[in-house]
Simulated scan of single mutants.
Amino acid sequence: MASHDLRTVEGVYTDFRRRREALLQALTVDAQEFSRQCDPEKKNLCLYGCPNGNWVVQLPVEKLPPQLLEPTLGINFPRDAMEHKHWLSLVAIHSDVWLYAVAFLLWFTV
């Protein structure tokens, strides 16, 4: 995918759309793989929707740009304590909040 210019409205929208597609992929089509990667025995994990359209579950990034917000920490801990569909819904809610926060942050820095 071609890179996008975050200094334009179109660039911010492209970033938002690609991150959203990645999160939707993780929580629907790839839900079993996503769940497998969210092992409650691991440390605080985060779900990242990447601007290239991929998703990744990993520990929080050590050094984010100061203006970029961190996704919700510890999505893996309630995995086995809730019904699977409720856990996915909870992660989806937190992911939406993070996604909108990133988009608005980028929008206001345009």
Rank of each mutant, 00 (worst) to 15 (best):
A2P: 15
A2R: 10
R7Y: 07
V12L: 02
V12N: 04
V12H: 01
T14H: 02
T14N: 04
T14L: 05
T14P: 01
D15L: 04
F16R: 06
F16Q: 03
F16D: 02
R17N: 11
R18E: 13
R20K: 15
E21M: 08
A22M: 05
A22V: 01
T28Q: 12
D30G: 05
Q32Y: 01
E33P: 01
Q37D: 04
P40K: 11
K43C: 01
N44S: 10
N44D: 15
C46A: 03
C46E: 02
C46L: 02
G49L: 01
G49K: 00
C50A: 03
N52W: 05
W55A: 01
V56L: 08
V56E: 10
V57N: 04
Q58F: 01
Q58T: 09
E62Y: 12
E62G: 14
P71M: 08
T72H: 08
T72D: 04
T72G: 04
L73S: 10
G74C: 09
F77M: 06
D80S: 05
A81S: 15
M82F: 08
L90P: 00
V91N: 02
A92W: 11
S95D: 09
F104D: 12
F104K: 09
L105E: 11
L106W: 06
L106A: 14
T109H: 15
T109I: 12
T109D: 12
V110D: 02
V110Q: 13
